[in-house]
Amino acid sequence: MIRSAFNRIFGMLIVMALVVTIVFVIVRVTPGDPAAVMLGPDATAADIASLRQRLGLDASIPQQFLSYIGGILRGDFGQSIFLNMPVTDALWQRAEPTFFLTVFSLAIATLIALPVGVLSAYWRGSAFDQAATTLAMFAASIPSFWLGLIFMQFFAVKLGWFDTSGYGGPGASFGERMHHLVLPAVTLGLISSALITRFTRASMLDVLNDDYVRTARSKGMSEWRVVVKHALKNALIPILTVIGLTAALLISGAIVTETVFGLPGVGSLIVSAVLRRDYPLIQGALLVVAGLYVLVNFIIDMLYLIVDPRVRY
C-alpha cells in the first residue's frame, strides 16, 4: 500500500511537471503584445519596447522558463501585467462568483436530473422515458451562450426581472450578488442537467434489476420505498461521482456563461487575460485550474486506496 501511494505521488508529480511545461509552451507561443495593449492606440514603437523591457518580456525563453519555475516553487505565480496585482490575488478576488455559480448550477442540474433520471429508469421504455431522454439530449445540444443571450434578452431586458450583467456595485449585499447569479445558473444548470440525468437513469437501471430490490419487492414493501430507500440509495455513489465530475466540467461552462453575463469570475478573467495577452495571468489561471483538477483526482485515488487496499497503481 505504501509503495502504491508512493507510485501515485510520483505519478502525480510527473503530471504536474507536464502541466507546468505545457502551460509555459502555450503561453510563450502566443503572439500579441501586452505592452501594446496597455499603452493604447497611439503609442510609439519605442514606448512599447521600453515597457516590454520593464515587464521582463524581453528576457530569453530559457531565462523566462527558469524564473517561471522558480516562482511556482516559491508559490509565486507572478504579477498580472494588466491588473497590476499578484496573479493569486486576482484569482482569489474572482473566486466568489465562480464558486457560487458552480454550486447553484449544480444544484439546479441535480434537482432536475435526479427525479427525471429515477423515473425514466423506473418506467423504462415508456413515453416518459423516451421524452425525458430525448429532452436531456436536446438540452445538451444547445450552445450555452445562445441560451444565455436569449434568457438575458427576455428576462432581463424585456421583463426587467434581473440585471443584464455584472455582480452588483460597491457594497452590494450578498443577496443582491446572488440575484445576479440566477440567470447564469439557470442557463448552465439546464444544460448540464443532461449528463446527470443520463447517468442517474443508467445507474438506477442497474440497481433496479438487482436481487435485493427484487427481495424487497417480494416482501411487499411499497414501490416508493423500494425505489427511494433501496435502489436510489445504492445508485447514489456512482451518481455522486458523476455530479462531482460535472462540477469539474462546469468551469468550462462558466468561462462562456460568465462572459455572456459579465460576471467577474475566474472564467471571464481567463478570457480577458487571453484577449489582453496578460501572460502571467493566463499562465497562473491555467496552472491553478489544471493543478486543482490533478490534486482532486489524486485525493480521490488516495481515498480509494485507503478504503480498498487491493487497488494498485
Binding site: 443571450l149 438575458m152 434578452q153 432581463a156 431586458v157 426587467g160 440585471d163 443584464t164 450583467s165 455584472g166 456595485g169 460597491p170 462572459t259 455572456v260 459579465g262 480577458s272
Partner: peptide, 20 residues
C-alpha cells in the same frame, strides 16, 4: 461616480434599455 466595465456592446445595449 462609479465606472463599471461592460465590455460587450450588446450587453451595454441591453443594460441601457433596462435602465441599469
Amino acid at each position: 461616480i462609479r465606472f463599471v466595465p461592460v465590455p460587450d456592446p450588446n450587453t451595454r445595449i441591453g443594460a441601457a434599455m433596462a435602465g441599469q
